[in-house]
Simulated assay, not measured.
Amino acid sequence: MSIRIFILSKLMEDNNYPYKLKKQLSEPIPLDELGGLTESKLYYHFDSLAKKGLIEPVEIIKEEHRPDKQVFAITSKGREELPKLIYKLFEKADVITDMVVGLANLKYVETDKVVEILEKKLITIKAGWEKISQFDHVQTYKDSEKIREFLNSYFSTKTEHTIYWLEELIMRIKQGEI
Results as ranks from 00 to 15, higher is better:
54 L>T: 01
55 I>P: 01
55 I>L: 03
56 E>P: 01
57 P>V: 04
57 P>D: 10
57 P>H: 05
57 P>C: 07
58 V>I: 08
58 V>L: 02
58 V>D: 03
58 V>S: 11
59 E>K: 13
60 I>D: 11
60 I>W: 10
61 I>A: 08
61 I>P: 02
61 I>C: 07
62 K>G: 03
62 K>E: 15
62 K>Q: 13
63 E>W: 05
64 E>I: 10
64 E>Y: 12
65 H>Y: 15
65 H>E: 12
65 H>D: 11
66 R>I: 09
67 P>F: 05
67 P>V: 13
67 P>D: 02
67 P>K: 13
68 D>E: 13
68 D>K: 08
69 K>P: 04
69 K>Y: 01
70 Q>V: 10
70 Q>D: 01
71 V>P: 00
72 F>T: 02
73 A>Y: 10
73 A>V: 13
74 I>C: 13
74 I>N: 02
75 T>E: 06
75 T>K: 00
76 S>E: 15
76 S>Q: 11
76 S>I: 15
76 S>W: 11
76 S>T: 07
77 K>R: 02
78 G>L: 04
78 G>R: 04
79 R>M: 15
79 R>K: 15
80 E>K: 15
80 E>T: 13
80 E>Y: 14
80 E>N: 14
81 E>L: 00
82 L>Y: 02
82 L>H: 11
82 L>A: 01
83 P>W: 13
84 K>M: 05
85 L>R: 05
85 L>V: 11
85 L>G: 02
85 L>D: 01
85 L>I: 01
85 L>E: 06
86 I>S: 03
86 I>P: 03
87 Y>M: 10
87 Y>V: 04
87 Y>C: 09
87 Y>N: 08
87 Y>A: 10
87 Y>I: 06
91 E>N: 14
91 E>C: 08
92 K>M: 14
92 K>D: 13
